[in-house]
Every structure is written in C-alpha cells, then in structure tokens.
Amino acid sequence: MEKMSNLLTLVGILMASPAQATPLHDAVTQNNLTEVRAIMSSEKRPQLLEMRDELGRTPLQLSVHLNRVEIAKILISHGADVNARDAKQDTPYLLAGAEGRNEILKLTLENGADLKSTNRYGGTALIPAAEKGHLETVRILLKTKIEIDHVNRLGWTALLEAIVLSDGGEIHQKIVQELINAGANVRIPDKDGVTPLQHAQKRNYQKIIEMLKKAGA
C-alpha cells in the first residue's frame, strides 16, 4: 500500500505542473538573486513558486540541491513549501538533512518541516545525516522532537546506519556518542537480529564498541 501511495503521489506531482524548468528554476540555477527577488515581487510568483522541473523539483528543492542559501531564504519567506516532494520523494527539509545543508535545514525547521516525513527508504532526515557523517546536522536534528529510534525499510535506525555504513572513524564515533547522549536505544537490532554492538564488533570499531557497552549494549 505504501508503494502505491508513493506512486500516486509522484503521478500527482507530474500532473500538477509542467515537467520543465521555469524562469524561477533558471534564476536559482544561475544563483541570480536579483531575478529571484524580481519574480517573487511580480504577479508570476503564485504560479511559479511550486512548479516543477523535469526531476519534479520545486525552485526551493533545487536551491537546496545547489545549496543556494540566500535564495532559499527568499523563497521560504514568500511561502515556498518546505515539505513539497520531488520525483525521488525528497522534500526540501529531507534533502537539507541528508546533504548537510545546515543553514537551509534550520530555515525549514523554522517554517513547518514535517519531522515525521520519510524519504524513499522510509527514513527520517536523521538517518541519512548520521550515515553520511553530517555531525552538525545530527546535532541540529537531535534538538528537535524527531524520532531518534525510527527504523527505515532497510531495518536500520540512525545508530545502526552510523555504524553499518561508516568507516568507524572519528566523525562517526562522535555521531554515535551524540545519538547515545540523546537517548538512542543501543539494543535495537536490524531486521536480521544483529545489534549495533555486534555490527561494531564485526568491524572491530573499538571506540564505538566501548561507547555502546558503556551505554548498556
């Protein structure tokens, strides 16, 4: 049912607006602040603000992808939807979290980001942030009411991904500690019943092993 729901959402996105870049998309791509401001002040704003390019992205989603912080501020201040989904089921909020776009992430959190929203893997913004080593992003998200122990469709929590999909280095050690400090359940196993501690032991991640044991794993 969830796959069908996602498919219907995608169909709705593609039918809702032309699948081609608009002048506003072009202005975002060119990082043309003057043109963005001009469009936002014109009568074209309502029709262009949420229109999609060929990848189903709104201008705000494109600004996140390109890390156009000032443009994102302008678009959000004019009501751009921080929860609008593209063809990959990402939203500006989810993408900002996954890519470590912290300035834009903070803007989305201040403007209605849906903390319960999930990406195409069924994961919250915290999970890919932990996996990819975006330490400051993880810290930002842990200050919200995001579900720290959410399990994605792969059967992994943010803690598991910080171990399973990392090299066990200093950054991920810090992320694991941040998750533990925030109350992450260190005993939740993956879908095969393998715990975070067992994954760390298998990879010989000694410092992470010590952290997990100290936390009661």
Rank of each mutant, 00 (worst) to 15 (best):
47 Q>M: 13
143 K>M: 03
123 G>V: 00
56 G>K: 03
177 Q>R: 10
18 P>Y: 13
18 P>V: 14
181 N>S: 08
21 A>I: 09
156 W>N: 14
128 P>G: 12
184 A>N: 07
169 G>Y: 03
211 M>E: 14
43 E>L: 12
98 A>E: 12
131 E>G: 09
36 V>T: 02
44 K>W: 13
18 P>A: 12
101 R>D: 01
35 E>C: 11
151 V>Q: 10
96 A>C: 05
157 T>L: 05
116 K>N: 09
139 R>M: 06
60 L>V: 07
174 K>Q: 15
209 I>E: 08
51 M>Q: 15
3 K>P: 13
17 S>K: 04
31 N>V: 01
119 N>Y: 02
77 S>C: 10
108 T>D: 02
196 P>R: 10
10 L>P: 03
150 H>W: 05
134 H>A: 00
210 E>V: 12
197 L>V: 10
18 P>T: 13
90 D>W: 15
168 G>S: 08
9 T>A: 15
16 A>V: 05
144 T>C: 09
80 A>K: 00
16 A>M: 10
51 M>P: 06
157 T>P: 02
78 H>D: 14
197 L>Y: 12
102 N>R: 05
142 L>A: 03
118 T>S: 02
160 L>D: 04
210 E>R: 13
52 R>L: 13
117 S>F: 03
94 L>V: 07
217 A>N: 10
198 Q>K: 05
137 T>H: 03
210 E>C: 08
203 R>A: 13
66 L>N: 12
98 A>Q: 13
119 N>F: 00
171 I>W: 03
55 L>T: 12
113 A>V: 00
13 I>H: 12
122 G>Y: 01
117 S>A: 14
19 A>L: 13
83 N>L: 04
74 I>F: 07
216 G>K: 11
